[in-house]
């Protein structure tokens, strides 16, 4: 790899642009794709690799190519700059999520409590509209406060977020589902919300709960049988 190509790759990744580094294995020649100057078949294979988020070797016209898919990081939006969020954020970062913490209560959402993380202090509905969760985004609400959690969950349900989780006991969750139903979400949509949030580890402490949520994010991302069942499509 030439230093110039490595720099171009780093630049694309910094701009959160999905790219493929294509290596012609017999001689090591490399290109960054998509590139209209390259053959359509190669660009198509690269587009497929990005879609699947999988790197691998493909044969094109009898030649082996390694297509290395560099997709932008998965995102996690955490609503509630609470103690459990402080525990969750480092775990989630370690397993590859770019994390944004949202909490309009400035005493909670301080940089001191959340070093090296993007913290937003606008209201969750505004923050969610600005962040635009997509199919590579997970949303977790942790405030226990319907004024903050509900607007975030409402927005999350209207998005393609691949995981939605809400902290709270089963009883709290049932009440929450009732309020969201009143906002027009049908049972199929509400089934997308994992509540209580996290894998059932019998977690007690904040770090244990943070770990259980991070573990469930990995399970959802990797399609593990431990992940909550995923309804086929969003209702809205």
């Amino acid at each position: 790899m030439t230093p110039a190509l490595l720099a171009a790759l780093a630049e694309a990744r910094a701009a959160k642009q999905p790219v493929v580094l294509a290596t012609r294995l017999p001689d090591g020649a490399q290109w960054l794709l998509p590139d209209p100057a390259q053959p359509a078949a190669l660009n198509a294979a690269a587009a497929h690799a990005l879609e699947e988020d999988t790197s691998g070797t493909v044969k094109l016209d009898g030649t082996d190519w390694f297509l290395h898919a560099y997709t932008p990081p998965l995102r996690l939006i955490v609503v509630g700059a609470v103690h459990i969020a402080q525990a969750l954020v480092p775990f989630a970062s370690e397993v590859g999520f770019a994390v944004t913490v949202v909490d309009p209560r400035r005493a909670f959402a301080s940089d001191e409590r959340f070093p090296n993380v993007t913290v937003r202090t606008d209201w969750p509905d505004e923050a969610m509209a600005a962040l635009g969760p997509d199919s590579r985004t997970a949303v977790v609400t942790l405030t226990h406060d319907p004024k903050l959690d509900d607007p975030a969950l409402d927005r999350a349900l209207r998005s393609d977020a691949f995981y939605i989780g809400a902290l709270g006991s089963r009883r709290t969750h049932a009440a929450r589902l009732g309020r969201l139903a009143a906002l027009g979400h049908d049972p199929a949509a509400l089934a997308r919300i994992k509540g209580p949030v996290g894998l059932d580890l019998e977690a007690v402490t904040a770090p244990e709960i943070g770990l259980s949520i991070a573990a469930e994010l990995v399970a959802a991302r990797r399609g593990s049988p431990l992940a909550p069942a995923r309804p086929a499509a969003r209702a809205a």
Partner: peptide, 17 residues
């Protein structure tokens, strides 16, 4: 932090520099 692949390439670039 966005996964280890980026870290390896960043490390490679830093070593070369």
């Amino acid at each position: 932090m966005t996964g280890d692949v980026e870290d390896v390439l960043a490390q490679a670039a830093a070593w070369r520099d």
